[in-house]
Design a protein around this nucleic acid. Structure first.
Length: 326
DNA sequence: CTACGTTA
DNA sequence: TAACGTAGG
């Protein structure tokens, strides 16, 4: 199903970290945090990532341990958070409740109507980041002076938009559908051991002789996060069919198939809900003491667990000139 | 999401 | 050779 098939289509190239020095990466925060949430939990002894009350704080450890990767290679991350109800801009309880109610109503309505696209969209926004994780992550990033952008909807789409506008050099995400949102350059495996992998939109389109619109149509045939795709159509068949017939509808007509909500999925990728209403500085001036206190004193994370991470941040931010004096 | 064995 | 299903991380 779906997205992994885009790997066979995309033009990928390994890029040495050294080549990325000085660049700005618009990171899909949900994607990045989710990765650290799962891996941190894996090899950290139980209890170190939950408070006495049982609140999950693995995200705080993940952030402290994950950010040095960027800083040590002189990369400035811009964390792009998903919009929607799970992404709360205010701390007022009232508005939280209201937002949540609105979200639940929307989801319920979508389910009643059997609107698969809307359901998938709404669910993808909440996935698994709890409210505590969302708010404490933002707070910690703010103390570390890491830029944060609030997306009106999908963070992936907003990140792509930021790169298209030239305000960042790369999208940072493991998701191949960054391509479908029109991200010119996407970096994958930014958290892994080895060098990152660059996914190039222009090269991908050129390789297959497709327009972005056609690539989106091919993806819809294969299946995306928002639609199941046509049975029997994988990456190869999709591309040759789109090449032969031109677009989604012609392919479907020729094969006597249909794709439910095809037009809406197409629209979602072609014209995603993004905003120009953001701003960020790429010169960082982190308050390490406040950040350490927030993580350790306020949330009860074992000091040893984050000591090394903070050391690395301190060292790298100064040495790589990401601070305001550079 | 990746890897790999199975099936058309 | 391409697509799919399942398991593992």
């Amino acid at each position: 199903m779906g997205n992994a098939a885009l790997r066979d289509i995309a033009v990928l190239e390994e890029v040495p970290f050294e080549d990325l020095a000085g660049s700005v990466v618009a990171v899909d925060a949900h994607n990045w945090l989710y990765r650290y949430l799962t891996t941190t939990v894996k090899w950290t002894s139980s209890g170190k990532y939950t408070t006495a009350e049982g609140t999950e704080v693995a995200n705080l450890i993940g952030i402290v341990q994950g950010l040095p990767k960027f800083f040590e290679h002189d990369i400035t991350p811009v964390m792009v958070f998903d919009g929607g109800p799970s992404d709360l801009k205010t701390d007022e309880i009232e508005s939280r409740r209201e937002q949540r109610r609105t979200y639940e109503e929307q989801l319920e309505t979508a389910r009643e109507e059997g609107d698969e696209v809307a359901i998938a969209q709404l669910e993808s926004r909440t996935q698994r980041l709890t409210e505590t994780i969302q708010t404490t992550s933002r707070e910690l990033l703010s103390l570390l002076d890491v830029p944060v952008v609030e997306a009106p909807a999908e963070g992936e789409a907003q990140a792509a938009h930021i790169v298209r506008r030239g305000d960042a050099d790369y999208v940072g995400s493991e998701d191949y559908d960054a391509l479908l949102f029109g991200a010119p350059r996407t970096l994958r495996q930014l958290t892994s051991k080895g060098d990152p992998e660059l996914m190039d939109l222009e090269a991908t389109l050129e390789k297959h002789g497709l327009t972005l619109e056609q690539l989106i149509d091919a993806a819809i045939l294969i299946g995306t996060d928002f639609n199941p795709g046509v049975s029997g159509i994988g990456p190869k068949t999709a591309i040759s069919a789109i090449t032969e017939h031109g677009d989604l509808w012609s392919v479907l007509e020729a094969r006597g198939e249909t794709v439910e909500y095809g037009d809406r999925v197409r629209q979602l990728f072609r014209d995603p809900n993004v905003t120009d209403d953001y701003e960020f500085e790429t010169t960082l001036d982190p308050d390490l003491e406040a950040a350490r206190s927030f993580v350790v004193d306020e949330w009860g994370v074992d000091a040893d667990e984050v000591a090394r991470g903070f050391e690395r941040i301190e060292g790298s931010v100064v040495q790589t000139g990401l601070d305001r004096w550079s």
